[in-house]
C-alpha cells in the first residue's frame, strides 16, 4: 500500500498538515449513493477523510451509468454500496468505508448517524430527505443537494439554527417521477457539496442559511439568502 504521506502530498502542499490530520479524524454519513453520493464520496476519500458511511439499499441499473461515477457495466444488478465501497477503498487506502444497505425513513439509522460528524444528503426524493432531517443529531450538519436537468441547488442545514428542508419545500410530491439529469451538473453540484462538507468539518460552513443555485446552460452560480421561518 502506498504510504499516506505520498497519497496526500498535494493536499498537504495546499492546505497543510493540520487540516489533513483534522480530516483523518472525521467521519461522514452519505445518504444515497446515486449521482451526488458517488461524487461527494470520491472527493472526500481523495481529500483524506478518516471514515465514510455510505447508505443505500438500491442496485445499479443501466440508467444510472450516465452520471453515477463509481459504477460500470460490470456492476449492473449489484448492490450500490457494495460496488461503491469496493471502488472507494481502492482510491487511497486511507479511508475506512462502511457500506450500509438501509432505506432512509424505513430503517433505524440512529446508530450510524451517531458516529458521524456530518451528513451529505444525496437522496433522490423529498420524503426520504425529510426523514433524514428528522433524525439528524443536534450539532450535526447536513449538506443537502438536488438536481434537475442541468440545474442544481444545495444548502447546509444546521438543526435549530437554519430553516429546515420542510420549511423550504412546502409541497414536495414528485416521488416516483423519472427526472432528467445530465452529467455536468452532477459533478458541479457534487464538487460544491464536497467543498461545503470540508468547510463544515472545519467549522466554517458557507451555505448555512443560503441556497447556492448552479446552472450549467449559462454557467451561473448565485447565492440566495434564507431567513428564519
Amino acid at each position: 500500500m502506498m504510504s499516506e504521506i505520498d497519497v496526500f502530498a498535494r493536499n498537504r502542499a495546499f492546505w497543510g498538515n493540520e487540516r489533513q490530520e483534522l480530516l483523518a479524524g472525521k467521519s461522514l454519513f452519505v445518504a444515497g449513493m446515486g449521482a451526488l453520493g458517488c461524487v461527494v464520496s470520491e472527493i472526500l476519500v481523495r481529500c483524506g477523510i478518516g471514515e465514510i458511511v455510505i447508505a443505500d439499499r438500491g442496485i445499479v441499473d443501466p440508467p444510472d451509468l450516465n452520471r453515477q461515477s463509481l459504477y460500470t457495466l460490470n456492476d449492473l444488478g449489484r448492490s450500490k454500496v457494495d460496488c461503491a465501497a469496493g471502488r472507494l477503498r481502492t482510491l487511497t487506502g486511507q479511508t475506512r468505508v462502511v457500506p450500509a444497505k438501509v432505506s432512509i425513513g424505513d430503517d433505524d439509522i440512529a446508530g450510524l448517524l451517531a458516529r458521524c460528524d456530518g451528513v451529505a444528503d444525496c437522496l433522490d426524493n423529498f420524503p426520504s430527505r425529510f426523514a433524514l432531517e428528522d433524525v439528524l443529531p443536534g450539532g450535526t450538519f447536513m449538506i443537502s443537494g438536488g438536481l434537475l436537468g442541468d440545474y442544481g441547488q444545495l444548502t447546509t442545514i444546521l438543526p435549530g439554527r437554519t430553516a429546515r428542508l420542510r420549511d423550504l419545500f412546502t409541497r414536495p410530491d414528485n416521488t416516483g417521477k423519472v427526472v432528467p439529469v445530465v452529467p455536468p451538473i452532477v459533478f458541479a453540484v457534487g464538487s460544491f457539496m464536497a467543498q461545503e462538507i470540508l468547510d463544515s468539518l472545519g467549522g466554517n460552513p458557507q451555505l448555512a442559511g443560503v441556497i447556492l443555485a448552479v446552472g450549467m446552460s449559462c454557467l451561473f452560480t448565485e447565492r440566495v439568502p434564507i431567513g428564519p421561518s
Binding site: 433522490d124 438536488g146 434537475l148 409541497r171 414536495p172 443555485a213
Partner: peptide, 10 residues
C-alpha cells in the same frame, strides 16, 4: 419575492 424550483433528483 424569490421563487425557485423544488429540485430533488440526484
Amino acid at each position: 419575492f424569490v421563487v425557485m424550483p423544488p429540485v430533488s433528483a440526484a
